[in-house]
């Protein structure tokens, strides 16, 4: 995940991964820490993970991208290795105001990676290119 997440946040995600790997369960103290570090994004993100809303999409070229189905049913694109989501909250709260670390979709991606709970999908290279450009396509409409 990109260099834009503070070390503390990355460490917490690693701890969650470790705990889940060993016990198939995330202890309450780590959940509290998650709420503490990620604020209002934490609970909605856990909800997205519960509903298996995160899909890792791969194409034959090896390129990957994540797609998250938001609570409204809308699809958002999150880049696999770099801190970016195409949703309005990421644009406003993360990029513009800088008062959040992540949006709920990105956090759901990070949590799904840690818990190994992503849906998997393979698409042709050309379709993956279009998925990477999601925001641009929406502006054209």
């Amino acid at each position: 995940m990109g260099a834009t997440l503070p070390a503390l946040a990355e460490e917490l995600l690693r701890e969650i991964e470790k705990a889940f790997c060993e016990t198939s369960h995330v202890p309450d103290d780590l959940l509290l820490a998650l709420k503490f570090i990620f604020g209002a994004s934490a609970v909605p993100a856990l909800d997205l993970v519960d509903r298996q809303s995160v899909t890792r999409i791969t194409s034959p070229s090896g390129r990957q991208v994540y797609q998250v189905v938001g609570s409204s049913g809308k699809h958002y694109t999150c880049y696999a290795s770099c801190h970016f989501c195409s949703c309005p909250a990421f644009m406003f709260s993360v990029l513009r105001k800088g008062d959040s670390l992540v949006c709920k979709h990105l956090l759901a991606v990070y949590l799904s990676q840690a818990l190994g709970s992503c849906q998997e999908l393979t698409v042709p290279d050309k379709q993956l290119t279009r998925l990477l450009l999601q925001e641009e396509e929406e502006e054209e409409r």
Partner: peptide, 19 residues
């Protein structure tokens, strides 16, 4: 068109380099 699009370009470049 917007700073968000500029951020998307840069994020996409980094993600591409990672690929």
């Amino acid at each position: 068109s917007s700073p968000a699009m500029a951020a998307q370009l840069v994020a996409l470049l980094l993600d591409t380099a990672n690929h």
